[in-house]
Design a protein around this nucleic acid. Sequence first.
DNA 1: GTTTTCATTTATCATTAGATAAATTAAACC
DNA 2: GGTTTAATTTATCTAATGATAAATGAAAAC
Lengths: 227, 227
Amino acid sequence: MSQSDKPLRATKHRLTPAERERQIIDGAIAFFAEVGLDGQTRELAHRLGITQPLLYRYFPSKELLLERVYDAVYVKRWKPEWEVLIADRSLSIGERFRRFEKDYQRTIMTYDWLRIFFSAGLKGTDLPARYLQRVRSQIFTPVLAELRRELGLLSPDLLPLCAEEFELIFGIHGALLYVGIRRFIYNMDVSIDQELVFDAEIDAFLAGVGPVMRRLVAEHQARTGKS
Amino acid sequence: MSQSDKPLRATKHRLTPAERERQIIDGAIAFFAEVGLDGQTRELAHRLGITQPLLYRYFPSKELLLERVYDAVYVKRWKPEWEVLIADRSLSIGERFRRFEKDYQRTIMTYDWLRIFFSAGLKGTDLPARYLQRVRSQIFTPVLAELRRELGLLSPDLLPLCAEEFELIFGIHGALLYVGIRRFIYNMDVSIDQELVFDAEIDAFLAGVGPVMRRLVAEHQARTGKS
DNA sequence: GTTTTCATTTATCATTAGATAAATTAAACC
DNA sequence: GGTTTAATTTATCTAATGATAAATGAAAAC
């Protein structure tokens, strides 16, 4: 009760379980992002300045520690406001999509997020597929519905969205993501004015998406209607 | 000298060194693509139906075996005709670029190519950076030069290509690549008419790239000219 | 058909992996 | 201030890891 309630963190030993757990997870995120998910628990412990068996006091297995890492990086960093933004009809769908992509890409374009994501995919985990399924259903589906509406095309209720329409959105999404891939997966330095580039790419996408989508929907309608 | 010069490959043992080396490299490509570059030599040998020490008869170390894998997958699959195609002025640069991307993506969009590429990047190898540098200098640089020319903009000799212009090309390139990433890295099933989708995306890109590039070059010129 | 060659296997080493049990010791409690 | 609690460490198990040396045996050479 004197100058500090918590024991002064200079002599590092003996953290509370909550503190230690937090510290391990944070360290594990940085560690596994750097060396890959096959990184050894001994080296992780060493970097944290603790012994390896202590990890097992807090996490029953390496696999369960990784689950907590995934939770911290992917589940906890998802912003529900994105789904709200996409539904906000006071803005054009183009503007909504632009704002979403710029904030989304800014959120995920980090060393940790991208490298663990790709490592998990390569390892065979279903994490990336499940995550992207969420983006598809919560964001891209309403975006396409709104695009149909603004373009005066048939509602998805009458003519379901087709895979090729989704690919249009995945296309621009992947184009922006590619900056992060080159930076953090390929280890290249991509020194650009990212704001400028993203706006230019989204401009070009929005300018071009109308005609292409009209064509896709027409073809889709013909296909569905006749066969 | 009777019916077959080569010993009948039914009783598999005793290959010639050339055959065995080929077999090991082919097996290693499939193996490391599947399990990652940390895959164990013992399991690779087991899949090949040989013993693990035999690998070391042909390759002094796992690292050198991986070098041979990189060579087989990335160096040997590069098509010099791509560089010829891009220089062929009997076609519009749009058409040249379309043909390049469609053949290029068809070449690299395989389980082996993509997974080993990303594994190598995550491992810290400079392979992806060096490879993409080649694409940039041998393909994208001439594409941008031709685009400048067709749009009546300043030649790169007078005003060097800027990073943002390259990003336009990297953008559409990444958009197409993203199909392969979702398929082979995220393990998703992307069931689309790829021909149709790629054409649509390239259409949209080519339709939009003119105005955006004019703007970028103008801004770049203003920046360079004044400062 | 015997000998030679060399592709392949068996046996083995030193190191490292994830995980567990028992011993230690800093801090909380009365 | 002695006792209790529990955060942390030391010691250790078992199974793999890349790599090497010596033994084997199928095919080529003569």
